[in-house]
């Protein structure tokens, strides 16, 4: 039997006494784009950060239940290895301000002290920047600081940085909410390209965006996964009342 890329069963997460993710079970298939939606504070970010084990870095945070990458239990793997395999792109573009564009792309290798021949490094940089649709814009300024780029370019640089590690899954936490409409649409176009090689899980507040880019949508409400279905199905005929209320704008 083929395993799902990510599968959760009865997964829970807490911040101290705050039960932020409740009993979530979900199966995410390879090469799909999954949109994660729901009102603010319903645990979307927390769930995402459980998948690459960033949640446990918050003091007092804990988890329970099963979360797997293919057949492997994410919570018995080495967290460092988990984060190699599951990349993350944040809400605000966060390139390393002390590194050049080139070094930002291979930051995952350099900061980990992994020695790689220069030719191979050059190749990774070009390939990742091309995949992130940024190569043409920066190929002449690879040794400038990454922070000279515009917000949208910085976000694509962060995507290139994640891609460079050749992950299985890339997590996006509201990746366009800090960007202007043009940068947003260039990132959305990128999702279509990326899904050929990666599985994408994207938290978004923007319903049009979810409809445009995702194959399936997960709707979270107060820490629970209320509904998980094909995006089209979800937006035309949601099964749960809460999903329906959300997409018709009855609460945000």
């Amino acid at each position: 039997m083929e395993h799902s890329v990510i599968s959760a069963s009865n997964f829970n997460a807490w911040f101290g006494d705050n039960h932020a993710v409740k009993d979530v079970s979900i199966k995410i298939e390879k090469n799909q784009v999954i949109a994660v939606m729901g009102p603010s504070g319903c645990g979307k970010t927390t769930f995402l950060r459980c998948i690459n084990r960033m949640h446990e870095l918050v003091p007092g945070a804990r988890t329970e239940g099963m979360l797997k990458l293919y057949a492997d239990d994410i919570y018995t793997m080495n967290p460092i290895y988990v984060r190699y395999k599951i990349g993350m792109v944040f809400q605000r573009p966060n390139p390393f301000p002390n590194l050049s564009i080139y070094d930002n792309v291979v930051a995952g290798y350099k900061l980990n002290g992994l020695k790689i021949p220069k030719v191979e490094m050059d190749h990774i940089v070009e390939k990742s920047l091309t995949s992130a649709a940024l190569w043409n814009e920066v190929k002449d300024s690879l040794h400038k600081k990454g922070t000279f780029l515009s917000g949208g370019q910085q976000q694509r640089l962060c995507i290139a940085r994640a891609i460079a590690m050749e992950p299985e899954v890339i997590l996006f936490d509201e990746p366009t909410s800090a960007l202007d409409p043009i940068s947003t649409s260039s990132i959305e176009a990128l999702f279509h390209e990326l899904k050929a090689n990666y599985t994408l899980i994207i938290v978004t507040h923007n319903m049009q965006q979810a409809a445009r880019v995702s194959d399936k949508t997960a709707f979270f409400y107060l820490g629970e996964l209320v509904e998980f279905d094909n995006t089209r199905q979800m937006f035309t005929a949601p099964k749960d009342k809460r999903t329906q209320n959300y997409i018709t704008g009855r609460f945000s």
Binding site: N52, L57, N94, L111, G113
Partner: peptide
Amino acid sequence: PDSLKEAALSLGVPYHR
């Protein structure tokens, strides 16, 4: 900003590095 540390941690960089 914390986002800097998070960026590095999310790439699997150990805390001391």
